[in-house]
């Protein structure tokens, strides 16, 4: 289904400054039909501002956004017809049932009838609960209702901002399968996230944003190759272990954000894969008890370090 002609989304020189502070700085990228495009960056990188400019919630200071050839700012009625989106959380009216919510949004578009509402309800598997008040829905169900709402108008571009926030592993897996099936139907997707692992599983091409700029754009495998590997160590006696590790100049201690989510007695280092086996042997011969060694998945932060050559600002 890959089409070679005009892109579904074309962003050119898009920038936004608020009170002379540059939030988004000259972004340009295209998304073609059937493509799953990841939008990656830490919180505060300008992802959400960019997405809001794509759907006319924020007026850009300069640059253009074209969806299916229509300028979003000049002709929102034509352009937004082709877009379904969830900006941050799936916000729906709590005091209505799921069905009533979908009816609300259906009335705002042309050619969405009851049949289509029933169709999207089935797509997101909400048939059983659709007539219950949204108040009683779980977060996952709200998410699905949000997606149903986004799909109502048969969009050519679906924009999901942090879609896996608050989803349990099962929900995430379902979402992934769902996203791929949509892309197979020829829908283009723009998915923003601050978690690399998530984007890795979902997207073909990514743009990495930092401080309002795109610092890298391309196929995810190509970008990942550039990232150095991290290794997590656990020792019986931490201080001795760390001291011993540091003797090798090729091993660099990292106090990266990964520390926050790992047990505090885990040491994170950056080291080439080739010397792991040798290092274990060296430490063992010095009588240091190794409890665990594990290669960490490359993280977004790590990718950043490689790309920007600087510490990640928290």
């Amino acid at each position: 289904m890959k089409a070679s002609h005009a892109p579904v989304l074309r962003v050119k020189d898009l920038h936004k400054s608020i009170q002379r502070h540059m939030i988004v700085d000259k972004l340009s990228f295209d998304i073609h039909s059937g493509e799953i495009f990841g939008f990656l960056g830490p919180n505060g990188a300008g992802k959400t501002t960019t997405i809001r400019m794509l759907v006319d919630l924020i007026k850009p200071t300069g640059g253009t956004v074209e969806i299916c050839g229509h300028n979003v700012q000049r002709n929102p009625e034509r352009a937004l017809k082709h877009v379904g989106c969830i900006v941050e959380n799936p916000e729906v009216y709590n005091y209505m049932s799921g069905w009533q919510n979908l009816e609300q949004f259906a009335r705002m578009m042309d050619g969405v009838d009851e049949e289509r509402i029933r169709e999207v309800t089935e797509i997101v598997k909400l048939e059983d609960r659709i007539h219950d008040k949204v108040k009683t829905y779980s977060l996952g169900m709200r998410q699905r209702l949000g997606i149903a709402q986004a799909l109502l108008g048969k969009p050519k571009l679906l924009i999901l901002d942090e879609p896996t926030n608050g989803l349990d592993p099962k929900g995430m897996k379902e979402l992934r399968a769902f996203v791929h099936s949509l892309a197979d139907e020829g829908i283009s997707l723009l998915i923003s996230s601050h978690m690399l692992s998530e984007v890795q599983m979902l997207c073909g091409r990514v743009a990495i944003m930092d401080r309002g700029k795109i610092i890298a754009i391309g196929k995810i495998e190509d970008l990942m190759k550039e990232a150095a590997g991290y290794v997590n160590w656990r020792f019986q006696e931490m201080d001795k272990g760390v001291a011993e590790l540091c003797r090798d100049p090729r091993i660099i201690l990292r106090n990266g954000p990964a520390r926050d989510i790992l047990p505090t007695d885990t040491i994170v280092v950056a080291m080439p894969e080739a010397i792991i086996a040798d290092t274990i042997a060296r430490l063992s011969s010095r009588g240091i008890g190794i409890l665990a060694v594990c290669q960490a998945e490359p993280t977004l932060e790590e990718l950043f370090l490689t790309l920007t050559g600087s510490e990640v600002h928290a």
Partner: peptide, 14 residues
Amino acid sequence: TTGTIKMLLTRPVK
């Protein structure tokens, strides 16, 4: 407050 304004204003309606 509820954020539904985002849904409202991203529809193809002026």
